[in-house]
């Protein structure tokens, strides 16, 4: 018995070593930096000056919320529709959803610049039609578009997984008990799909709130989001590691809180919960 347990632990050893080196140690370094100054002396000053970054935090949360809502509005009907068609078509649509993820997201984001730019594809086309150039890039809309585009698959996949696993007999029972299709959706399907929705929301909200590349490339690099602030401060050099760590830590706590809330919805049902 003991031997077996030891053996199975050994199998997981590479992961534990990995986690220790690349997750646990950096985490403690971040906490250390957060509560020390440049000379390594304990201080709360880094946390205290985070007020400077409140606009960045606010913008990040706002944009992440908006793009999460939009991805949900697009993804849920799509996932629902997918479960209604024959399996081979489901696979095709699934492939199309996952397809963009095979390309690096930096490249995909960059390609939006060529589409949205003042001299880009859309505006060149509009110009040919004699319509004035529209300001598409460097707008909040472009940033949201970039986020929705990049993170949509993370919303579709968990919802689709959960929806496709709903026991057909449940739906038949609902029919038998006299539900019309709207009631069926509202009182049977949606509640049963909540774990998938919760995990989709987490998987879109978390990367959105900490994103930095999209905001710089599509937003004109003029407004600083939290991700930008962290990246920027680290790039400025060791003098700013402490403040940057403090922002990262606060961001992480915010994300953990959000995940804790989301996990309440998916309690008792492990399926579809990826994080």
């Amino acid at each position: 018995m003991n031997k077996k347990r030891f053996g199975s632990r050994l199998v997981a050893a590479p992961y534990y070593v990995w986690a220790a080196i690349f997750i646990i140690v950096p985490l403690f370094m971040m906490i250390y930096y957060t509560f020390t100054d440049v000379n390594g002396v304990f201080t709360l000053a880094n946390i205290m000056q985070l007020g400077r970054f409140k606009k960045a935090f606010g913008l990040s949360i706002l944009y992440a919320l908006i793009s999460t809502i939009i991805t949900f509005i697009i993804a849920y009907p799509l996932a629902y529709f997918m479960t209604k068609i024959k399996i081979s078509s489901q696979r095709l649509i699934l492939l199309l959803v996952v397809f963009p993820m095979w390309m690096n997201f930096l490249i995909r984001t960059y390609s939006w610049i060529t589409i949205l730019a003042n001299t880009g594809i859309i505006n060149t086309f509009l110009g040919k039609l004699g319509l004035g150039p529209l300001q598409l890039i460097n707008t909040p809309g472009a940033v949201i578009l970039g986020m929705v585009y990049d993170f949509l698959p993370y919303m579709v996949l968990p919802i689709y997984t959960v929806l496709s696993k709903i026991d057909k007999s449940m739906l038949e029972a609902a029919d038998d008990l006299g539900c019309n299709s709207l009631q069926k959706l509202r009182r049977v399907i949606f509640p049963l799909s909540l774990p998938g929705v919760a995990s989709g929301i987490t998987m879109v909200f978390v990367p959105s709130v900490s994103t930095f590349y999209i905001t710089q490339k599509l937003g004109g690099n003029k407004t600083m989001f939290v991700g930008d602030a962290i990246e920027y401060l680290f790039n400025l050099g060791p003098d700013f590691y402490n403040v940057a760590s403090a922002i990262s830590l606060v961001l992480m706590v915010l994300i953990l809180l959000c995940m804790a809330v989301m996990n309440r919805f998916s309690e008792g049902d492990e399926e579809g919960v990826i994080i």
Binding site: R52, A56, M224, Y232, L233, L236, D239, F240
Partner: peptide, 13 residues
């Protein structure tokens, strides 16, 4: 240097 780098962060924020 720290002073102007902080000012720059303010500009960016």
């Amino acid at each position: 240097r720290l002073y102007y780098e902080n000012l720059w962060i303010d500009v960016k924020l």
